[in-house]
């Protein structure tokens, strides 16, 4: 493939990154080489087509209504077969290099570092060999990585533009993608298979202060900050990070741990803590309040109510809301749920 890029076109033709984000994986180089080959074939073909069109329109203009052009040949089999041949050849070249790159991205070496990616409405959860989990993706630099992707509910698609990586997350099966990280860096990730209300915030998104609902601005650039990203770290930093992730609540009281889980387990996407309505009811003032449900019943918000709402969210749906929350059965331990309850208690 290196020869291919040297012989034909390569991505150094996109120095300012006009068409592409960073080339942050081995796979990205392969994709960009083929992309720019097609790009130049397209530009040349397009220029020829339009130039001929404009030239003919100007040269062969009708000069009066009765202008009849001279009789000319109306077919030429050699020519017609002839101009199909380059089209066919380009097709074969593109197919070949596209398929080679694709097979490459689907064939991980046996020593690839495995990260599990789980999509659910509407967040990604990454889990690492040591059992740690995170909502940002952390990867070691210069390492072959195999992602094993799954979904809890509907189709999602895990997309990291800088890696030129995309793979659907399909409920009921694992899908895979292999690539090799390069230097340390920070990249965006997205969900690219439509999955409902919060589809567009499932991945890198503008950072919003959960208390004020205001965009958080970067004091240096004055631009809105983003969160939920892919971090490629030097090996040592990566290992340090894994340790932290392995035990997130160490040294914290229950309410603070709950606050951490609230962000980490994506409760923040749907439940505000400032009284505003997002997708689900706010946590502010929830504790001890009377809940009226869509089926007409009601209950007081106590430990049991919160626990049931976490594990069986469709059981008691507050009037005015849709039953869209997935169950957190298996995603939160009993300890975690206690911490969440403590956090909700603290939000008067």
């Amino acid at each position: 493939m290196k020869n291919f890029s040297g012989l034909l076109m390569n991505s150094s033709l996109d120095p300012a990154g006009f068409w592409f984000p960073d080339q942050a994986s081995q796979n990205a180089e392969l994709v960009d080489d083929v992309y720019f080959f097609i790009y130049w074939v397209s530009i040349i073909s397009f220029v020829i087509i339009v130039a001929l069109m404009v030239f003919f329109v100007r040269k062969y203009k009708r000069n009066k209504p009765d202008h009849m052009p001279p009789k000319q040949s109306d077919h030429n089999t050699v020519l017609e077969v002839g101009w199909s041949i380059p089209v066919g050849i380009v097709g074969v070249i593109l197919f070949y290099f596209g398929a080679i790159g694709y097979i490459d991205a689907k064939t991980p070496p046996s020593d690839a570092y495995v990260v599990n990616v789980r999509g659910y409405k509407w967040a990604w959860e990454f889990s690492y060999p040591n059992g740690a989990t995170s909502t940002d993706l952390y990867l070691p630099a210069n390492t072959p990585i195999k992602l094993v992707i799954s979904s809890d509910d509907v189709l999602h698609s895990f997309f990291v533009p800088a890696f030129r990586l995309k793979q659907d997350a399909v409920p009921g099966r694992y899908t895979e993608f292999y690539f090799e990280t390069k230097e340390p860096g920070t990249h965006h990730m997205f969900c690219t298979e439509y999955c409902g209300t919060q589809h567009s915030t499932m991945g890198t998104r503008v950072k919003v202060d959960p208390e004020t609902q205001e965009k958080v601005m970067d004091p240096e650039t004055g631009q809105p900050m983003v969160e939920n990203q892919v971090f490629v770290l030097p090996q040592a930093d990566f290992e340090q990070k894994l340790k932290e992730l392995g035990n997130p609540c160490e040294g914290l009281d229950a309410a603070s741990c709950g606050k951490l889980l609230y962000a980490k387990k994506a409760c923040v996407g749907c439940h505000s803590v400032d009284g505003s309505k997002i997708v689900g009811p706010t946590f502010k003032g929830l504790w001890g309040s009377d809940r009226k449900f869509a089926d007409g019943t009601s209950a007081k918000a106590d430990e049991n109510y919160i626990r049931n709402s976490v594990l069986n969210p469709k059981g008691q749906v507050v009037a005015g809301f849709n039953p869209v929350m997935p169950t957190y059965q298996g995603k939160l331990s009993e300890e975690d749920i206690k911490s969440i309850i403590a956090y909700i208690k603290s939000l008067k």
């Binding site: 994709v31 097609i38 398929a99």
Partner: peptide, 17 residues
């Protein structure tokens, strides 16, 4: 012409959706 980008396997993986 842009269909060629999408018919090419590894490029489509980046551009799909």
């Amino acid at each position: 012409l842009t269909g060629m980008f999408l018919g090419t396997l590894n490029v489509d993986v980046h551009l799909h959706d």
